[in-house]
């Protein structure tokens, strides 16, 4: 049943997205074609704009579909299908993730082709000199895994935020405010996150992630407040090019706890649905 729900969601995404995405793709292709010409700047702006619109539209479809399916009139069908609340939630999570991956691929590849054409000779020289190879070698497999991890974590955060905002905002206590209820929850979540981030900046406990783990180690816990830094750590015998970024552990633990709590609360709301 989970697979059937995912297929149902994907079909709806496809139906909602194919027209606007086709238009964005056409604009993007036209922009890429024109990026090497004298219309360079207009093409670049048009191309980036089409990517922005495509990304925004995908995000809108993902969120509005969640709200309509669970709390709009379509909820009368979805909540009476013979599936469990957990399956309903997982289906939205997985189908949303697949859509997010599609969005990421469209945005990244679109931006890549656009920049490649726009840079023209400079890009060709960069490749000839082995620039891409240097970057790949520098970052390495752990760096790539880290990048993918960040992409996944971003989706987890996005899903947790909008699913919790909508589900709590439409529960029996707040649904009389309609979309105002969703806004109240969203603002509350945002305010708490900002507060946690602020506190986290003051707490001297961080997870330090190195961009080039082969030169040192991938990550370590340090008793310092979070920082983004490039500094010569000569006393450790590390080359000066070492770049690291810190994540406040307080903030990280809060984020992980938020993901779990969000899932539990949303699941509880779906089990105790109140469609008015």
């Amino acid at each position: 049943m989970l697979a059937k729900l995912i297929v149902l969601d994907l079909k709806i995404y496809g139906k909602m997205l194919w027209k606007p995405l086709s238009i964005c793709l056409l604009v993007l292709i036209a922009s890429i074609s024109a990026a090497g010409s004298s219309l360079y700047s207009i093409a670049l702006i048009a191309g980036l704009f089409s990517l922005l619109v495509a990304g925004g539209f995908i995000l809108y479809v993902m969120i509005s579909h969640y709200a309509r399916h669970f709390y709009g009139d379509q909820g009368y069908l979805i909540h009476t299908l013979p599936v469990t609340p957990a399956q309903r939630l997982w289906a939205k999570f997985i189908s949303g993730f697949l859509l997010y991956i599609v969005a990421a691929l469209i945005l990244l590849s679109g931006a890549y082709f656009l920049m490649r054409t726009a840079l023209g000779e400079a890009y060709d020289n960069f490749i000839k000199l082995g620039g891409l190879k240097i970057i790949v070698n520098y970052v390495g497999t752990p760096g790539l895994l880290l990048f993918l991890g960040i992409i996944l974590f971003m989706y987890l955060g996005l899903f947790a935020n909008y699913s919790l905002s909508i589900s709590l905002g439409m529960n029996k206590h707040l649904q009389r405010f309609r979309s105002g209820g969703i806004a109240i929850v969203f603002i509350a979540i945002f305010a708490v996150q900002q507060l946690v981030n602020f506190i986290s900046q003051k707490v001297p406990l961080s997870l330090r992630i190195f961009l080039n783990p082969r030169w040192y180690k991938m990550m370590e816990i340090v008793t310092q407040a979070p920082n983004i830094y490039e500094e010569p750590l000569r006393h450790h015998g590390i080359p000066s090019a070492t770049v690291y970024t810190d994540i406040g552990l307080f903030s990280l633990f809060y984020s992980l706890a938020f993901l779990v709590i969000s899932f539990v609360l949303v699941h509880r709301e779906l089990k105790r649905i109140n469609l008015r």
């Binding site: 709806i12 309509r68 009139d73 379509q74 909820g75 009368y76 069908l77 009476t80 299908l81 013979p82």
Partner: peptide, 14 residues
């Protein structure tokens, strides 16, 4: 729910 065929007063199809 699998035992019930339900017609709501609202249009539940998109």
């Amino acid at each position: 729910l699998h035992l019930v065929s339900y017609l709501p007063e609202k249009t539940y199809l998109r």
